[in-house]
Design a protein around this nucleic acid. Sequence first.
DNA 1: GTATCGAAAATGAGCGCTCATTCATTAAAC
DNA 2: GTTTAATGAATGAGCGCTCATTTTCGATAC
Lengths: 222, 222
Amino acid sequence: MPKVSDAHRQARRREILDAAAACFARDGFHRTSMQDIVRESGISAGLVYRYFASKDEVIAAIVGQWHEHRAALLTGDSATDNPATSDSATSDSARKHPAERATAAALPAYLDMLRAIGAPESAADLRLGVQVWAEALRSPAIDALVLGGVERFQEFAARVIRSTQRDGGLPATLDPDALARVLIAIYQGLMLQTAWDGTVDNDAFVHAVADLVGPLIGPGQA
Amino acid sequence: MPKVSDAHRQARRREILDAAAACFARDGFHRTSMQDIVRESGISAGLVYRYFASKDEVIAAIVGQWHEHRAALLTGDSATDNPATSDSATSDSARKHPAERATAAALPAYLDMLRAIGAPESAADLRLGVQVWAEALRSPAIDALVLGGVERFQEFAARVIRSTQRDGGLPATLDPDALARVLIAIYQGLMLQTAWDGTVDNDAFVHAVADLVGPLIGPGQA
DNA sequence: GTATCGAAAATGAGCGCTCATTCATTAAAC
DNA sequence: GTTTAATGAATGAGCGCTCATTTTCGATAC
């Protein structure tokens, strides 16, 4: 059986997805033709359709991988910053308090996420992200993915905030859910502004956010 | 000469633009066909091309009007909130201090802008805005418009912040430009989240922003 | 080792269709 | 009756996608 190896197949799939991601980041989903992806990947048109049944499926795969990447920034990074936490902290449902250990390092971890936006190598990712945002307004499937991602982040952040409030580190009068949404908004806004103009002063922005959030933090916090 | 009245012409133009805006907000620029606009407006295909030379020109007109609308929110609203200011406060260059009178009411005016995002009637505007953001990544002309708008807001806000700092109303250590960018980011993030999900708790969000910015404000401020 | 074979990988010209745009024609205004 | 507004079927360019064909390569025979 002259089938090709699974590794080769996955590599091919990746070639296509990488080419598609580059095209989509450059021109958006609907100004990118399949010919563009074919040209960029160097793979023939027919073969692309052995890996993906349609252009929409390519888009879905790209959005899915972009979304996984974002989710990894949340669970992965904050787990890394807190080695005390078990690293199987990915699961969703009935967990005790996966966030509580993260409380102390939560703000620095958040600021690091903002800093990562300024890294030159994430430029294409930012552009792709904005395209995904727009596409979420059209496609219920993508909308569900994106909203789910925001919700997960929002719940995570709100949990950390609540836990910090219990320790006296933040005023109890703050609405944790709303504050979490504001932090997400700041993240999204920085993404957008940086996608438009890579010369935005990331350091100054992060400092301003720190100056904004810092005064709220009480003695319970490092 | 059986020309039709100018009023009629402008009304026709508006019909086309309104239809286009509705389509673009629903499906994005590149998933909207000219047939869609023709159907939505009830105007024949040929006539549309008497008013706009191409689809790109329709897009440019929509982006232009959306942008003017945003700019009006800034100069118009804050002028309204401060009747003491002369209402020719729109000009750009060497002015003495157009923002100083606005200092006292600046934060409430900003919070009002956030509140306006939550109004149900602005839903289509928000969706269109996100499409414009994405399109700015492709089209240099749209990019210039959008960046110009952000810059104008940024400079305006930074001016207000600096003037408040001089009055002792804000710590002098804050970077006015960076803080202005953060406020813009919050605005953009709320736009985005509300465009995705109209049920976002706007009041809670605005309160959280007020709680975040409030503590910074010193005795010089109301 | 080499030749042979067949199944799957890979190709790319071409299919049907939709798109943006045009223009011969008709309707309406003065 | 003349002029312009308005129509909508027609056009060809370009799209997503297919499929008849060629290439590749592991398995088998000798």
